[in-house]
C-alpha cells in the first residue's frame, strides 16, 4: 500500500487558485504529482455533477480551489461553490463514501506556497484512505456506478431548485460559514436526496 498514488482531479478558478498553482511553478515549489487540473473561470461555475462525475470516472479524491472568502474575482462565486460543495459532501456521505475525499479550499493568486501546502496535505491524506472504496470497505466498481447515478441526480431539476434556495438564503443571511451553508443545503435537499440517493448514515 505504501506505493499507492491517489488520483486527484482538481477544479481551479482562473483568478486565484490556478494562478497560485502557476506561481508555485515559477517559484519552483515542489509538490506531489497526483493532481490533474481543470481550469474554470470561477469556482462558482462548479456544477455539482462535475466532482461526482470525476469520482465516477476514476478519481480517488477531488479538489476544488477558489479565491479566499470575500476576495472572489466575481464577488461571491466561491460562496456559491460552498453551496455546491455542501451538496457533494451530503451525497458522498449518503453513498457511504468518506466525504473528506472532496476538499474545497482557497489560495489567492499570490499564495503559491499555500497552494502547495494544501495540495501536499490533501494528497497525503488521500493516500492514507487508499483507492476509492478501500477505507469505506465498499466495492469500487459498484461505488463508481452509484456515483455516476448520483452525478445524474445532481442534474435533477428539483435538487438544483434546492441549491437555488440555499444560495438565496445564504446571500440573504450573509453568513458564509461552512457549517451554516451545509445546514441550509441539508434543509433544502434532504428529502429529495433521501429519495434519490439514500438516507444520511447515522
Amino acid at each position: 500500500m505504501s506505493n499507492y498514488q491517489p488520483k486527484i482531479l482538481g477544479f481551479l478558478c482562473n483568478w486565484c487558485c490556478y494562478t497560485a498553482a502557476d506561481s508555485a511553478g515559477v517559484g519552483r515549489y515542489q509538490y506531489p504529482p497526483n493532481l490533474r487540473v481543470i481550469r474554470m473561470m470561477c469556482s462558482g461555475r462548479l456544477d455539482p455533477s462535475f466532482p461526482l462525475e470525476g469520482l465516477a470516472q476514476g478519481a480517488d479524491a477531488i479538489f476544488v480551489g477558489g479565491c479566499h472568502p470575500g476576495e472572489c474575482h466575481y464577488q461571491d462565486g466561491n460562496y456559491h461553490a460552498l453551496v455546491t460543495a455542501a451538496l457533494v459532501h451530503e451525497t458522498l456521505a449518503r453513498l457511504g463514501i468518506n466525504s473528506r475525499r472532496f476538499l474545497i479550499e482557497w489560495a489567492s493568486a499570490a499564495e503559491g506556497p499555500n497552494f502547495v501546502k494544501i495540495i501536499t496535505g490533501f494528497t497525503e491524506y488521500a493516500a492514507t484512505l487508499g483507492p476509492l472504496g478501500t477505507s469505506e470497505g465498499l466495492d469500487p466498481t459498484l461505488l463508481r456506478e452509484k456515483l455516476a447515478m448520483a452525478a445524474a441526480t445532481a442534474k435533477d431539476r428539483k435538487i438544483r431548485m434546492g441549491l437555488i434556495s440555499a444560495s438565496r438564503e445564504m446571500m440573504k443571511g450573509a453568513d458564509f460559514s461552512r457549517a451554516t451553508i451545509a445546514g441550509l443545503v441539508h434543509d433544502k435537499c434532504d428529502k429529495l436526496l433521501t429519495e434519490l440517493v439514500g438516507a444520511t448514515p447515522r
Partner: peptide, 20 residues
C-alpha cells in the same frame, strides 16, 4: 464576465459558458 455562476445554478442546465 463569464464566471458561470448562472450555469451552476440553472435548474435545467439551460445555460452554458463560452470556451468553458
Amino acid at each position: 464576465k463569464g464566471c458561470g455562476v448562472c450555469a451552476a445554478r440553472c435548474p435545467t442546465m439551460a445555460i452554458d459558458m463560452g470556451r468553458f
